[in-house]
Nucleic acid binder design. Structure first.
Ligand SMILES: [Mn+2]
Ligand SMILES: [Mn+2]
Ligand SMILES: [Zn+2]
Ligand SMILES: [Zn+2]
Lengths: 152, 152
DNA sequence: GCAGTTATTGCGACTTGTTGCAATAAGTTG
DNA sequence: CAACTTATTGCAACAAGTCGCAATAACTGC
């Protein structure tokens, strides 16, 4: 377990309770795993493998249901990546929560803070709100693919 | 078949060929269906039902493979909607290609052109490009859900 | 702590989605 | 309009994901 993650884990359990959600073994475990790998986009495969390998393992269906729950609460953001299926990423207290996904080669990048702020500002100007836990996803062609095909 | 869609259908077949893709019965049919319902987000269920119901029907796997192909080429954009799974929408020559998805209630809205232009401009300023067939997706809480929960 | 309430779990049956492969047919060349 | 090349298809076996339901256990209130 990564140092500093302990505090976050406790915070998130408190957050869950504040949302009237129960703290159960499957949820603790899943949250732990997501936090310990908060810098990666996790595949359902590795999540399920971890959850199944634990002593007190959780059923497949519970894992799916909890991922859905966590996403609804803004703890994680799931996205489909071309060629590698759906992936889950921790976003709860991230300053930057936007992603570029190349439709052509499937490569994904994280954005910089400046762009994220600009997009937030535009959203606020035009629709009158700045949101907590907003995520933004751009689908397009990466610079490499743009060079190869003028259509992209 | 919707009037005016005929031309588009032909154009897209030409586009496919320009991308060195073959024009096959499953592709014609799928494209037809997507164009005839270009204003809706189609579920895989209704797509498969249509494809299967046709005289010259296409296999499930071919439908999935072609949806993937069409998405890679920027003809459609697929998105996962909370509570209703993945949906497919025609975006090829749309002026506005962004979506708001509420993580809490799953409702989705189309955006207005002004915001889309602002976001495009920000992207160009900061990353130096304006993309053809860019799609932008916002995940957050809709106004209704924001009222109900201060956390969202 | 104990009893009561009910969200969450695990299970099983089912549906949806993926993949390798051999057969097919779209496009190309002469 | 053949003959050829190879992308695409349908199929079948498999893997991933969903859903209703009865059992369980997390929280609440006393
Ligand atoms: Mn795939
Ligand atoms: Mn669902
Ligand atoms: Zn790319
Ligand atoms: Zn909502």
């Amino acid at each position: 377990m990564i140092p500093g993650a302990m505090k976050k884990h406790q915070d998130l359990l408190a957050f869950l309770r504040s949302q009237k959600m129960r703290v159960t073994p499957p949820r603790r475990l899943l949250l732990q795993f997501i936090l310990d790998h908060s810098n990666r986009r996790l595949s359902i495969r590795e999540i399920q493998e971890f959850m199944g390998a634990q002593l007190r393992k959780a059923d497949r269906s519970s894992v799916y249901r909890n991922l859905e729950t966590f996403e609804r609460l803004g703890i994680i953001q799931s996205l489909s990546f071309p060629g590698e299926g759906r992936r889950y990423q921790y976003v709860f207290d991230r300053k930057v929560r936007h992603f570029y996904i190349c439709r052509s080669c499937g490569k994904a990048n994280r954005g910089d803070e400046r762009l994220f702020r600009r997009v937030e500002a535009a959203l606020k100007d035009i629709h009158g709100f700045a949101k907590a836990n907003l995520s933004v996803v751009f689908y397009g062609a990466c610079s490499k693919c743009r060079k190869n095909s003028p259509t992209a």
